Simulated scan of single mutants.
Amino acid sequence: MVLGRGTGLFVGAMAVACMMLVGPSAPGGGLFGSSRPAAAVRDVVPNRVMTWNICNPCEEGNVDRAAEIARYAPQVIGLQEACVRDVEKIRDHLERLHGLVYHVQYGMVLRDRGRCGGWPWSPGAFGQAVLSAAPMTDRVSVEYPDGGSEDRGYVAVTTTVGGRPVRVFNTHLAQRRQEAVRADQVGVLAAAVGRHDRAIVLGDFNAVPDAPELTRIWAQAADTDPRCRPSSTGTCEVTTDWHSKFDYVFLRGIAPLEHRVQPTPYSDHHMLYTDVDPS
């Protein structure tokens, strides 16, 4: 059947209208294969770093976790209690839903099906992850000689914060009531941090600021909050639902500008981020 010119224009207009009503069918979620709508594209805050224990096992969605991170759009994020599959999904949601593109490096210390799913012969990997909007190099993943009741460690990378290179560490220390174990872990971490003139140390230390086991890290770096010190006279904001400060952004050779502790319904740890002056 041959259509007249007017009929052909009508059919073409209807096809476009149907595409607009039905929406895109490309795998990336956008018309003609676009990965995200142009309106969603945004930039990270180039001098902002964040630490967040995302809670595991917890029944929280990675879409919600990504949305929480996107609210503050840090240059660098250190996640603890992270499964590789969850981090992959969080990174994907950050890009597709919020226009934030991150590289990722892992410091996994456990292969645990109970925490991270997977098949019995291929359980999911569990530990720390670092997301950075800038590329990362010189990754080192260290498992502490004694993890306590569960394997623990740190991951370190070199990346760019505020336009300058910096060594970033992300760690999770032994669980509470294991002070001696944490003291040994801090010794390993502090020795590595001390080899760098400029470093940022993120993580869940499972200890309050004046805990004796944190002495060696305090000797190498300062908390991002100038009021928070390892003494009874310090004033430190709590970072957990049980009203303790366990989460830290330690700075070595870098000045803090301002910080924020943000409670979230998606973890028993609050989000802690800070803007820094890398100069």
Rank of each mutant, 00 (worst) to 15 (best):
E88A: 14
P135W: 10
W52P: 01
G12C: 12
E81L: 01
T240Q: 06
S132R: 08
G127R: 02
L79P: 01
D86K: 04
A26Y: 13
D204P: 03
G61F: 12
S132P: 09
A191S: 11
Y248D: 03
D151Q: 05
E258F: 05
R176K: 13
V49M: 09
R111P: 00
A133K: 03
N170A: 04
A174W: 01
P145D: 13
E68F: 03
P46L: 07
S35Y: 11
R36F: 06
L94V: 07
T235Y: 02
H98P: 00
Q178H: 14
P256N: 11
Y266N: 14
P230S: 13
A191K: 11
L100N: 11
A40M: 09
R177Y: 14
D146K: 08
R91M: 08
L31Q: 09
Y106S: 08
R229G: 00
L189T: 08
T158P: 01
D64V: 08
L110I: 02
L272S: 02
R176C: 03
V101R: 14
R48C: 11
L251W: 07
S25K: 11
G23L: 04
C83D: 03
L202D: 06
D92L: 09
F32P: 04
D86R: 14
R115Y: 15
Q220R: 15
C58I: 07
G8K: 15
P278G: 09
V186G: 04
V238Y: 00
P120E: 08
A125S: 15
A125I: 00
V2E: 15
D225S: 15
D223P: 05
E258N: 14
G127P: 00
G30W: 06
P46E: 14
S279I: 03
R48D: 13
A129E: 08
V238Q: 07
Y72E: 10
N56T: 11
R164W: 06
Q128F: 02
P74E: 13
S141F: 03
G194P: 04
R182H: 06
A134P: 00
G147M: 01
D247P: 01
A82V: 02
Y266H: 14
A73Q: 07
I90F: 04
G124R: 08
D43T: 13
P120C: 06
T158D: 15
P165N: 12
V49E: 13
R5M: 05
V157E: 09
G194Q: 09
C55P: 00
G107P: 02
V193P: 03
F10S: 11
D223S: 12
Q80M: 08
P256R: 10
A207T: 05
T274R: 01
S231V: 01
V208L: 08
W218F: 05
P46Y: 10
R227F: 02
D146G: 01
V76A: 01
H243E: 14
R182F: 03
A26V: 03
R36K: 07
I69A: 05
I217E: 09
E60M: 08
L79Q: 02
T274H: 05
D268Y: 08
M271W: 01
Y154F: 15
L97F: 07
P145E: 15
G148V: 03
F169G: 04
E95A: 12
G12S: 12
G153E: 10
I200T: 07
Q178G: 04
Y266P: 01
P74H: 06
A211T: 07
N53D: 09
R36G: 04
H93R: 06
D225V: 07
M19N: 12
M20V: 10
